[in-house]
Design a protein around this nucleic acid. Structure first.
Lengths: 210, 210
DNA sequence: CGCATGTCGAGAGTATCACTATCGATAGTG
DNA sequence: CACTATCGATAGTGATACTCTCGACATGCG
């Protein structure tokens, strides 16, 4: 298909498509003449993926590029793909304190987890814990064990989904990791908001109708 | 304290502090003369809160302002404070499909939740589900029940923390909601990343050392 | 064959965000 | 009484994510 059709079907303007190609997020179409380029359904799928990561996952275009390159690389280990999104976020380079890192690692240990020292999630969690403490809200840190239990439930479902895709080829498995991780955070956050409302009603307004 | 000291102690430049004041995120200090304004520890705490929401929570300054105004309003119901952050995100106004909304609501019902139709989490979750389907990844939707169970564990801990702060005054409780919700998403995402690594090692490389 | 329309990549332009810098007047400090 | 800090207002900056314009040229309808 030509760029106009790709733009129409994806909902992304032709100018933006060209820009994504030049930025390296989207492979170029096949040139069939001086001013003709042919795009196929793979390009359409890729565009949808890009838009999902950016619009729903909240990634910057640069971060989406990094994540997608990692997913595209057949030699790239799964474990790292997830971390790249985190590392690509416009995070201010404030490393967490050793104390918070230790506390989070401690929770992981109690949970029976095997977690590498440089795990980006560990760093991210420690940064959050630092903020709780800086805000004088040590009480909020008490949620850590409960959150860890919940994270384990989520991760089991995640790895379950990925393991079912391993025989569908590494590309599909990698895409599962990317989509499941980035959009999964948003999904989980949404469900959390729902559960909060429900739990809040249950505790503070018992007996009131739905 | 003067603005220079506030800047020094908060790590935010004096120019930025002035800007936050003019944007309405931070209350103005007390003018003590033509070019003298006095700030106190409340301003410092507020600045730390703003920076945490923006840097760690990923809120835009405008979104942080909305969330903080909601938290500041003594008449504002808790239940809504959480939703404001979600609604303030630079979300493209693509409403979810009825089908996805129904599916998510269905999961909530099976979980025994009482969730309002307009709950922002419900909308956010449905949007994610729509993307899964648009990407042809119906299999990813299978994680919904597991995620819902995890969300319930998290929400119980959240409401637990808030209920302990109810007698500390509505302002503290509201701040707990804001911080716990916004930073809590980041904390949970980090722990999820850790649990994923651990679960991945457990399943695919059993017996290997940590 | 003529010609409206579509397409090409390059590059310039635009909108938004989150600051940052500069200004002259003036207040406090040693 | 020199000097530094501060005031609010306003202009400027750099990053991000596009969007527009350009002239050359291909395609397809009549």
């Amino acid at each position: 298909m030509r760029i106009a059709e790709l733009a129409e079907r994806s909902g992304v303007s032709a100018a933006s498509i060209k820009w994504y190609v030049s930025e390296g997020l989207l492979p170029a179409g096949e040139r069939t003449g001086y001013n003709q380029t042919d795009y196929d359904d793979d390009h359409l799928a890729r565009l949808r993926l890009i838009r999902s990561l950016v619009e729903v996952g909240g990634l910057s275009v640069a971060a989406a590029k990094d994540v997608l390159s990692a997913a595209d690389d057949p030699d790239h280990p799964f474990g790292n793909t997830l971390g790249i999104a985190q590392a690509s976020l416009p995070r201010v380079a404030v490393p967490p304190s050793q104390e918070s890192l230790r506390r989070v690692a401690d929770v992981a240990r109690r949970q029976g987890w095997t977690v590498h020292d440089g795990n980006p999630g560990l760093v991210a969690a420690a940064v959050v814990l630092d903020r709780y403490l800086a805000l004088g809200r040590d009480d909020l840190a008490a949620v850590l064990p409960a959150y860890a239990r919940a994270a384990e439930v989520v991760a089991e479902a995640d790895i379950d989904t990925i393991s079912k895709k391993l025989d569908a080829g590494p590309a599909t498995a990698a895409q599962t990791v990317v989509v499941g991780t980035v959009l999964g955070d948003a999904l989980l956050a949404g469900l959390r908001r729902m559960a909060q409302e429900s739990e809040s009603v249950r505790r503070f307004h018992p007996g009131s109708p739905s």
